[in-house]
Design a protein around this nucleic acid. Structure first.
Lengths: 342, 342
DNA sequence: GGCCATACAGAGAGCGCTTACTATCCGAAG
DNA sequence: CTTCGGATAGTAAGCGCTCTCTGTATGGCC
């Protein structure tokens, strides 16, 4: 909380005085929504530029219009998963003449709440909250309350990649189905001992993907392999995979909950001197751009992140929600093959 | 421009009425900066929650305090280069109890100006503009004017990865030196015909890196190889590299202006059935996380993006600028080797 | 020459909050 | 039983804009 006062900013009135006109006239010149004589306009514009005047958005929106702003909340701005979603949102939102601001919450429920509050106070048009939801029932309840308040404040809340809340439409990904498809793919190759590397505990995406994996296993009557909790990032994947690969009864395949973690798994395999997929198969989820450049190229499940963001952006911009969740698609590449016969 | 009015939001006065107190009392309860009797406080808080009241930040900051917000402008929110910088900024800024909002400008000078204006109007504490500057002298002049106005509006502007402007401190990367180091590395391996894939024309980063490349070439008395303009992204790199690799007198090495483009070069080589580095060496710039996962791992120049962002964040948060630019460091990996003897 | 539409410009009332400055109420001190 | 001073609460003056009303020239017209 900086307690320094604003250094006596230049106001509309200052400009009016300098131009020798009334405040109303300056406002009209600036907004161009009312006829003003050419010479008057010039005088005003000159005064504006001489004084380096900047409209005060607070005063402006207090006196009328809404703030033309849409916020996007993501876990981590450096994660391409969120970057792609955010870019999709922005594309649609800016087509609607609104400005997008993005904020990173670090996946912290409290930060999430903090930014929602900030944006609500600014009377943003809408807030898109992207990514799985962590924090359990308690957080969900607080979020639900926030959604109610947001409605009262005139801000729409749009969920993206997590389940809807009363009053907040969601654009969803069928993670469970995608994960089941992937595991089925591994099973089809003959894998019977598959390690699974989850995302952070308590996250809805983590849970849906794990559930899908188990669905496929159960349907095939195959027992679950080793399970490890990760963090949706490369380092977490590397660490967990290092442990898994050192197991006496090493699995023939490792499924990571997302591509970033899978990249870490590949790194761990490399460090352990194991060949992928000859010694161990590896799969990810999301189909981030990096999965095509990985060594070997990564078998994964494509999530249409751009489209996900765009849909959320359209809802945020005031268009109707499009029904139906987005269905991920299996992308078979080189990191999965049949297990070596033992 | 949505012309719908705000749907009669709940105001402080409504809360006051409901709680049977004056507006001043409600304000004091909300801000906790003045003694209020416990029972009164409870009544007010109950009214607040019953009405789902949300403070109007515009009214609040009009009547006093500044907006506690720092903006970060990046070219592309989906590009890890910018994501990493933004994350660094946010880390420092949030340590100073300020909230960070990020916006993507698509590298368009006009969008850049638009967001600066938006943030200035909101009386943001500071705006960090990240990434090389495109748009030539005209844009620079407009930006300089904006910096002046920002000062008048009480907003600091901090440049990050581009040259400083009068009134706007900058955190710089010595791209030229890094690029020279890299090219020298290639030369040391014996390469004499090196293709260079630039970033977008007119961008300061593009120019600095190219200049460094030429410095090294000139110092060694080696002639420039083929030059191609790219776009700092994978696809641009792939396209340009495809053309280069098809040349009759194919270069023995390709240097891309950044890692993303280098990933595209690797993809092009793969498609052309060429082995890296046996048939052609490839190098990038930035040392994004993907360069360690690429196939083969990418020789590049490490730019301390996180630290870059953090320094900018510290300045944005009001701390003094730290002198000196950041020096990139050559990271030799597997994508560069001696050229095959012909 | 008198009238009225036309084109501008100014006045002034808020928008929803914060914050001096005042006004009460009460128990403690004199 | 007054007189005070603390503890609370209320009043009201803005903060910097926008926008609806009101003027007031100007010029075209009968």
């Amino acid at each position: 909380m900086s307690d320094k006062r604003q250094p006596a900013a230049v106001t509309l009135a200052d400009v009016a005085r300098r131009a020798g006109v009334s405040a109303a006239t300056v406002s009209r010149v600036l907004n161009g929504n009312y006829p003003v004589a050419g010479r008057t306009r010039d005088r005003v514009l000159r005064a504006v530029s001489e004084l380096d005047y900047v409209v005060n958005a607070h005063a402006r929106s207090l006196a009328g219009r809404t703030s033309d702003m849409v916020g996007v909340l993501v876990n981590n701005v450096a994660d391409p998963f969120f970057g792609l979603i955010a870019a999709g949102v922005q594309a649609e939102v800016s087509a609607a003449e609104l400005l997008t601001v993005i904020a990173g919450t670090g996946g912290e429920p409290d930060e999430e709440l903090r930014y929602v509050e900030l944006l609500m106070r600014q009377r943003a048009e809408a807030i898109v909250i992207a990514g799985g939801q962590t924090g359990g029932a308690g957080h969900a309840a607080r979020l639900a309350a926030l959604v109610r308040r947001a409605g009262a404040a005139g801000t729409r809340i749009v969920l993206c990649g997590r389940p809807p809340l009363p009053g907040a439409p969601a654009v969803e990904i069928d993670n469970r189905r995608g994960a089941a498809d992937l595991t089925r793919h591994l099973l089809a190759f003959g894998h019977r001992r598959i390690a699974y590397l989850t995302g952070p505990a308590g996250n809805t995406t983590t849970e849906a993907r794990l559930a899908g994996h188990r669905d496929a296993l159960a349907a095939a009557g195959v027992a679950e392999g080793p399970l490890r909790e990760g963090t949706f990032d490369r380092e977490g994947g590397r660490r967990a995979a290092t442990a898994i690969l050192a197991m006496a009864d090493r699995p023939t395949a490792i499924v990571a909950a997302n591509d970033l973690a899978a990249a870490g798994v590949l790194a761990a395999a490399r460090e352990a001197g194991l060949a992928v997929p000859a010694d161990v198969s590896v799969a990810g989820f999301d189909d981030l751009p990096i999965s095509r450049d990985a060594m070997p190229t990564l078998t994964t499940v494509r999530v249409p992140l751009d489209e996900l963001g765009r849909r959320a952006g359209r809802i945020a911009a005031g268009q109707a929600a499009e029904p139906g969740g987005l269905v991920p698609e299996l992308i078979a590449r080189d990191s999965v093959s049949a297990p070596a016969s033992r």
